[in-house]
Design a binder for these strands. Sequence first.
DNA 1: TATTATATTTTGAGCAGTCAAAACACTGCG
DNA 2: CGCAGTGTTTTGACTGCTCAAAATATAATA
Lengths: 222, 222
Amino acid sequence: MPTSTVEQYIKIIYTQREHLGEGVVPMKRLSEAMGVTPGTATTMVKHLDEVELVRYQPRQGVLLTEKGENLALRMLRRHRLIETFLEQVLGYDWSEVHADAERLEHAVSDRFIDKLEDYLGYPEVDPHGDPIPTASGAIEPAIGIPLNTCAPGRRVQIARLIDDDTDFLVYMKNSMIVPGQDFGVRENSAVAGTVTIEHLATRRVVTVGFEPAGRILVSEHG
Amino acid sequence: MPTSTVEQYIKIIYTQREHLGEGVVPMKRLSEAMGVTPGTATTMVKHLDEVELVRYQPRQGVLLTEKGENLALRMLRRHRLIETFLEQVLGYDWSEVHADAERLEHAVSDRFIDKLEDYLGYPEVDPHGDPIPTASGAIEPAIGIPLNTCAPGRRVQIARLIDDDTDFLVYMKNSMIVPGQDFGVRENSAVAGTVTIEHLATRRVVTVGFEPAGRILVSEHG
DNA sequence: TATTATATTTTGAGCAGTCAAAACACTGCG
DNA sequence: CGCAGTGTTTTGACTGCTCAAAATATAATA
Ligand SMILES: [Mn+2]
Ligand SMILES: [Mn+2]
Ligand SMILES: [Mn+2]
Ligand SMILES: [Mn+2]
């Protein structure tokens, strides 16, 4: 059985790879996402290669094997079902759900997760809009396009927020930027590096920087 | 913050001490309950003494300090609320609840536990009849007297079962010996080393050995 | 092409927790 | 008292994970 540390590395490699869109995950990126020195990540990744969870190309980076991908999806499933439970059942604030899930995901059994999923009524996405893999490892393609690619005049609905950073989530929540809310794009200025949107229900206008706007995923409609 | 290992040692020292009734907990007992060699327990206990969680008397045994007792009660609270959740909400079988709680108790936050307690409606005992400490560390004295001290003719109600061993619990459950059930004591023979009781609702008769009968705690009534 | 900056790997060390086995210290007899 | 049995502590070693800092490779720039 993999240790919690191994589980965490594998999950991070999966999500970083998703972030990147293509290619291998370089060590700098991995070590930063893990909060660990680069040397530590190198050592670990060599070990993960030994046990066939990743393929490690020295001086290039790392990729999940089939086996690694399965483990990653199992972890994502755990993480997201736990988040859903914390929010919907225990009444956690939407933005404080992440830290607790980060630890619980390594302590629960498969039995726990399957019963929890049943109790929750087989939700398809977690509170941040991320899709929840099934017990067999199937996952819906994550929906949404980055807000910073949307032209002025479009109407959009918030679909997902990348949920790594609590401060980011708190800020977005205070600005009504949560999954399901409808906005109109007012301005999208590459030179100014900002995107301005208006919350349709409250007419409230918010301006966010280009980088954070990339972590707000929306579906265009209308 | 204490590690999970430290949490586990402290919790075990508390429950072993409770089992013993009085005096210090000797190393053999501790190491067996922890599933660890005696040398390991000695090393650990010296460290726990350093950080003021226990008082260690070499060649005698170990006792919790005030600080250690607080931690123990916090762990017991976690363990028992989690067990209650697994049984009442997720629908775990009464006898398979323990193993999962054993890991989860080290991964949950205080926020989690307090919200869970609220969600469960502030239960007073867990599925095995063990009292649940409050957030401030208060605990009801454990109720019940050992079944092997009950005279023939008495009517008793099952109050608690010592929940360390799954096989024990499964057997008791199959014999209707679960908290809340009423029995009549038919025989209590020190020479034979057995106690025979009859389940009043079904007239079913069960005989158990003296040692296991000591782990069945009942309240006499009627 | 030579130089510099950056990413990566290697090396040596440390911490928490564990075991096996040897050394030691107390029973309680005979 | 002396000795055996049992419980306890000590010692040396190992695993998993980590860091700091030195060594090395690659990419970028002048
Ligand atoms: Mn995690
Ligand atoms: Mn999420
Ligand atoms: Mn435990
Ligand atoms: Mn219990």
